[in-house]
Write a protein that binds this DNA or RNA. Structure first.
Length: 296
DNA sequence: GCTTTCACCTGTGTGC
DNA sequence: TGCACACAGGTGAAAG
């Protein structure tokens, strides 16, 4: 499942293989893959043909490719991409057979012999075209202006994050998954960072002291950087980078998916609890529940 | 205004 | 063998 490290790996691949190339043709093979582009597949293709792609950018789990312009005001449009749960952006040779779940194909006006493919089994992801926030040097698409900066962004505001946590009347894992508070954290890295911080997922955000939230942020960054270093996390080949290679971080997970296995700190059997239509993995000894009856 | 719930999707695995 | 069902989970609209 692509979270921030996986998306960053894809961004780097796009930067290397796609940036600076000019779009020659676009095939939309499944309309759901561009459902956020309200004007439809024909408009999506027509607006892209002839445009040169700028440097790939990322905020949290969103990626975008600015469409270069000659004006001094920066890019005014950008292709926005979200991989959802199973999306892949692959750079493939023209002659490579179509993937079973190929949704969008973008061909380029050059002789490099490769094309960009958006492949997505569960169709939660997609591409779309948007105006950018006026004056934004990175060409941030307007529809994701509400997404918070991610913890690997040098401009991430730790003091504001802590203040927001204290203001909220919610629990810590919900807050970590709220992309308007902090972006890029999904179910896997939330469980990993909470385990490292010895925090229970149901702990109230209002009870977190500044040192505790600082420590949590440190662990979020650690686990993301470690995943980045090995190319992201992959469980079932649904996630691969732009060259089709899987990440290896799943071998290093301490919490996620380790139900009944011994905690790597204290040896207690790890537990899984249904949580918001998904699962939370935690150590019942290291990560004490906030209320005696809240977990067993 | 803030917080919580649910629909959207498809492939895989399990139990009967 | 075939069927029903649970599960994976990010996002945003709708409900509370």
């Amino acid at each position: 499942m692509p979270e921030l490290p996986e998306v960053e790996v894809v961004r780097r691949g796009l930067e290397r293989w796609v940036c600076g190339r000019t779009v020659a043709a676009v095939d939309v093979l499944h309309p759901r893959a561009i459902r956020r582009h309200l004007a439809g597949p024909g408009d999506f293709a027509a607006q892209l043909v002839g445009r040169r792609l700028g440097t790939a950018r990322r905020r949290g789990k969103y990626l975008w490719l600015p469409l270069e312009t000659e004006g001094p005001t920066g890019p005014d449009r950008a292709i926005l991409a979200h991989l959802g749960m199973s999306g892949q952006l692959l750079v493939q040779p023209h002659e490579a057979p179509d993937e079973k779940h190929l949704r969008i194909r973008i061909r380029f006006a050059d002789d490099a012999g490769t094309e960009l493919r958006f492949v997505d089994q569960r169709t939660f992801g997609g591409l779309s075209l948007h105006d950018t926030v006026p004056g934004d040097p990175e060409g941030l698409p307007d529809v994701i202006a509400h997404i918070a900066r991610d913890p690997l962004d040098p401009a991430f505001d730790e003091a504001a994050f802590h203040a927001a946590l204290r203001r909220r009347r919610t629990t810590i894992k919900r807050a970590l998954l709220d992309q308007s508070l902090i972006s890029g954290v999904g179910n896997i890295y939330a469980d990993e960072a909470l385990w490292r911080s010895r925090l229970h997922y149901d702990r109230s955000t209002a009870t977190l002291t500044r040192p505790r939230s600082t420590e949590l942020l440190t662990h979020i960054r650690e686990v993301m950087n470690e995943a980045l270093a090995v190319g992201g996390t992959s469980f079932d080949s649904l996630y691969v980078n732009v060259n089709g290679e899987s990440g290896y971080f799943d071998r290093s997970l301490d919490a996620y998916g380790r139900e009944d296995e011994p905690c790597r700190r204290c040896g207690t059997a790890m537990r899984r609890r249904p949580w918001m239509n998904r699962s939370s993995y935690f150590c019942p000894r290291c990560q004490r529940p906030p209320r005696p009856h809240a977990a067993s």
